[in-house]
Design a binder for these strands. Structure first.
Lengths: 182, 182
DNA sequence: ACATAACCGTAACGCTTGTTATGTGAATGG
DNA sequence: CCATTCACATAACAAGCGTTACGGTTATGT
C-alpha cells in the first residue's frame, strides 16, 4: 500500500485499517504522524538489512552481491525500493528524517567500503581510498534503482545486472591513479 | 517553496498565494491538481534544460560538462534537484507522471549517449555500446545527486567533482570488453 | 481484592484540502 | 453598441486530514 501510493498518500486511517486497528491505537503509540513515519522507515531499514543475502562471499564477488542486494530485481525488492524512493520526499522536507537518511546511507557506504577493502587485499580491486570507491559505487547503485523503477522496460533484471557488471569491470581495471585532465 | 516542502506539501492555495493570485485562477487553467503538478514538472524540465551550460565542449570534456550540469553544486542546482527528487514520490504513485519521468530520463540518456559516442570517435573513450555506457553514467550521476542532497557535509562540491572524475577515469581506461566472472 | 495504569476503540473536533458554483469586470467580435 | 465569451476573484462545499477527548476493558502491582 505504501508501495502503491507512496508516503504522500499515507494516512493514519489507511495504516490503521491495513493492520485491522483504529486511529486510537496509532495515536497511543505514536504521538504524531511524524513519529509513525519515522518508525516506518526504521522498520523498512531493518527489513532491508535482513533481506536474504544471496550468498555474500568475499572479495569482489562480495561487493557484487552487496550491490545486487539493493537493486529492484524481484517484485519484493521493487516494492521496497519504491517505498524507499518515495520516502525521499517527506525526508527532504523534514531535517530530522533527512538526518536519519544521511546516517543510513553513510552506514551503507561503510559496509561497502569494508567489502571493497577486502577485495583490494585479495588483489581483485586496484588500490585507492576504499571509502571513496564505496561512495562512487553506492551512487551508481542508487541511481540505477531510480532509473529501473521509472523505466522497468528499459531496465529489466538482466540489464541491471549487465550495467552493474560493466561498472565492476571498470572498477577492477587499474586506471591511472592521478588527476584526470579537466 | 517547492524546494523546502516538496511535492507532498504542495497545495493549490500556497501556489496561488506565491504568485499573487487565487485558487480561481489555478482551476481556470488546470482542471485538476494533477495537471498543475504535471505542468510544474514540465516547467522544471525546461528550466533544467536551459540551465547555463558551463562551456559544453566536445569529446570527454563534453560528457563531463553534461554530468557536472546535473550535480547540486550551486544553491540553485540544489533547489532544482531537491524538487526533482521530491517529485519522484508523486510520480511513482501516478502512472502518467511516471511515464513522463521515464521519457525524460530516456531523453537525457540519449543526449549523454551522443556525447559519449562523440568522445569515442575522438578516441577519448574506449569502444563499447554508447547507450549502455550512457545508462551507467546517468545512474552514477543520479545516485550522486541523491547522496549529496541528504549528506551535503559528506558530499561538498569538490567531493562530488572528485567522484565524478573518478568515474570518468575508470570509464576512459579500457577494461576487458567481455563478460566478467560471475 | 482493589486501586491504578496501560491499552485501544469510538467519536468528535477544528482545520485544510481539492473542487465547484457564482459573480464581475474586461476583452472580443459581429 | 450590444451580446457573448473570457479571465479571474470570492465564496462556499463536502470530504478527508491529524489530533484530541473520553469511555470501557484489560492488565498490573500491592
Amino acid at each position: 500500500m505504501l508501495a502503491a501510493h507512496g508516503f504522500g498518500g499515507l494516512t493514519l486511517r489507511a495504516v490503521a485499517a491495513e493492520l485491522g486497528a483504529t486511529t486510537g491505537l496509532l495515536t497511543h503509540y505514536f504521538p504524531a504522524k511524524r513519529d509513525l513515519v519515522a518508525h516506518a522507515l526504521e522498520l523498512l531499514e531493518q527489513r532491508s538489512a535482513s533481506r536474504p543475502r544471496p550468498a555474500a562471499g568475499v572479495g569482489l564477488s562480495g561487493v557484487r552481491a552487496a550491490m545486487l542486494g539493493v537493486l529492484p530485481l524481484t517484485a519484493e525488492a521493487i516494492d521496497t525500493n519504491r517505498i524507499w524512493v518515495s520516502s525521499w520526499d517527506v525526508a527532504l522536507a523534514d531535517p530530522a528524517l533527512s538526518g536519519d537518511h544521511a546516517r543510513r546511507y553513510a552506514q551503507s557506504r561503510d559496509k561497502l567500503r569494508d567489502l571493497i577493502a577486502a577485495a583490494q587485499q585479495l588483489g581483485e580491486l586496484p588500490p585507492g581510498d576504499p571509502a571513496r570507491i564505496a561512495a562512487g559505487a553506492q551512487s551508481f547503485v542508487l541511481g540505477l534503482v531510480v532509473q529501473a523503477l521509472f523505466d522497468p522496460t528499459a531496465f529489466p533484471s538482466h540489464r541491471q545486472v549487465e550495467l552493474l557488471d560493466d561498472y565492476l569491470t571498470a572498477l577492477a581495471s587499474p586506471g591511472q591513479v592521478k588527476e584526470p585532465g579537466r
